[in-house]
Amino acid sequence: MTKLTLGPIAYHWSADKRRDFYARIADEAPVDEVYLGEVICSKRAPFHEGDLPTTIERLERAGKVVVLSSLAEVMLKRERMATSDLAAMDHPEIEINNAAGLYARGQRPHRIGPFMNAYNEATIMWMAGQGATHICLPPELPAEAIAIAARSARALGLGVEVQVFGRLSLAVSARCYHARAHRRTKDSCQFVCADDPDGMPLRTRDDMPILRVNGIQTQSESYVDLVPDAGRLVADGVTHLRIMPQEVDMVGVTRLIRAVLAGQLPVAEAGVRLQELCAGRQFSNGFYHGQAGYRRIANATLAP
């Protein structure tokens, strides 16, 4: 049975907003697994990590598998500490996004996050030999490569995950571009990123929306939408479909995707309703089709 997962919140949502969000996810969202934890900026973690135990308990009581995700970028002492602390945990499961975490974790079981660059069968085989139980593939992999990677991961008994909804992570940096936009630096940022719960839009000089800034991360302007491709992904061996939290009705989004997977909602109708749920957002699937990521390629086969 294909699992639906909710990825870690990429943005600096307030502690209140997170509590409300995860309470609704626990009660109402038909996702099987939920990733928690701060992946983008270590400065944000103190705002919400105190709530983690209650959030974990709440989600687990609702029958969700909880996974803690580690920082993508590790440089400072506190980031190294946070990474090794996470790697020392026995429960819940952990997803590692930086080689510093792999080093600390050793051979104990762990998931490989999307920042770990598991692009091919040789790397996946290496990672499996080091204790990886699950791989989230990089978002820029095209369908043919996903199929080959998934097949080899399945043969090793690994779970395989692909992001099917939400903004794509396109780059990370040591510099905070949110702070820069406000003429500050990372150390003096005053958490301006909190003002942009769906990322800060960048537009070209001829006024085309192009990218989103989220602290040190650069994201796609478009939301990826591989919901019409879910059937092919599953047929190709993908076991987990990742939905990234965005500033839209996420319970509605997860219900819609669950209904498509269950064959209860035709893909064409799902597309119309997803657009309604995400008013004003553009969708893309170019990476999946081996083309420019921002593109939206019409699907030849619409049946899941």
């Binding site: 993508a72 920042f115 660059n117 990089p138 396109l170 990218l211 796609s220 990476f287 990521g293």
Partner: peptide
């Protein structure tokens, strides 16, 4: 860790 070129 940069897919900006591929995105465009």
């Amino acid at each position: 860790r940069c897919s900006l070129t591929n995105y465009l």
